[in-house]
């Protein structure tokens, strides 16, 4: 039996009296695209933040089975350590390095996989220059992968909205993740851009990176997900393959209100 790559056990996150997450049990299988959906304010981003260490879980466990680095309980680790362990993320409100060129944004992403320090930088040792070349080449490859090679020299802030999302994905991929957490990557995209994004997410999965996705766009979620978790009011209310979740009365109620199912939904 294949064990999940990421598993949360009774993950809770409270803010004072507000129970943003209660007993969240997620299982993300390796090689899958798993989605986390739910109405606004359901606590999806809080789950992401607790997994990636932006803040520590109040209680519960986060377990990652890294194929090369082994199994670790990462709950409470610092975000940079979690990233270096192979969990990369993007943000709902884009967090790019706005004043840096596109390529340097990706180069920052390569940070956890490179080593050279102060002295080799000052003396420009052969090792330093070799590593800089490798960083440059890898950054170009990641840009090509998301289709931003042409925009290499532009400032990140001057990119179109959809391209900024792509750049954030390229930067996250550059950290060398086994699991990529995407927080509403299609927000603010037009249907054509969303379609291209869907292709990109599939391409990432096919390249061997497992994807955990928060998304509002139902068409996107139902089309590409292997498995879907549904949250409402800080709790998981349903999970299963997209077809099963789509017809689950609790999910319909959460999205459309009581009785909403009578009118059907898309």
């Amino acid at each position: 039996m294949v064990e999940p790559l990421l598993e949360t056990r009774k993950l809770c996150r409270y803010f004072g009296g507000v129970k943003a997450n209660r007993d969240i049990d997620l299982r993300v299988m390796p090689g899958s695209i798993t989605s986390l959906i739910g109405p606004n304010g359901a606590g999806k981003t809080t789950v992401f933040n607790a997994i990636t260490g932006i803040f520590a879980p109040t209680s519960g466990e986060v377990i990652v089975r890294h194929p090369r680095l082994g199994t670790r309980s990462i709950g409470g680790w610092r975000p940079d350590r979690i990233c270096a362990f192979g969990l990369a993320r993007t943000f709902q409100n884009i967090h790019l390095f706005a004043d840096l060129p596109v390529i340097d944004n990706v180069k920052v992403g390569l940070h956890p996989r490179t080593r050279r320090g102060v002295l080799s930088a000052i003396f420009r040792t052969p090792g330093f220059l070799r590593e800089e070349d490798e960083i440059h080449a890898a950054a170009l490859h990641y840009l090509a992968f998301v289709g931003l090679l042409e925009a290499e020299h532009d400032l990140a802030t001057n990119l179109a909205y959809g391209d900024q999302r792509k750049l954030e994905i390229a930067r996250a991929l550059a950290t060398g993740p086994v699991l990529l957490l995407l927080d509403e990557p299609a927000a603010g995209m037009n249907p054509t851009e969303t379609l291209a994004l869907m292709e990109l997410i599939r391409k990432i999965r096919d390249a061997g990176v497992t994807v955990l996705l928060i998304e509002h766009d139902m068409k996107l979620v139902m089309n590409i997900s292997d498995y879907v978790y549904v949250m409402d009011h800080g709790e998981l209310i349903a999970h299963g393959p997209p077809v099963a979740v789509r017809s689950d009365p609790r999910v319909i109620e959460a999205y459309l209100g009581p009785g909403g199912g009578e009118h059907g939904h898309g």
């Binding site: 940079d80 990233c83 990369a88």
Partner: peptide, 8 residues
Amino acid sequence: TAARACGI
């Protein structure tokens, strides 16, 4: 925040 998320 983004710097931390990039493993720095």
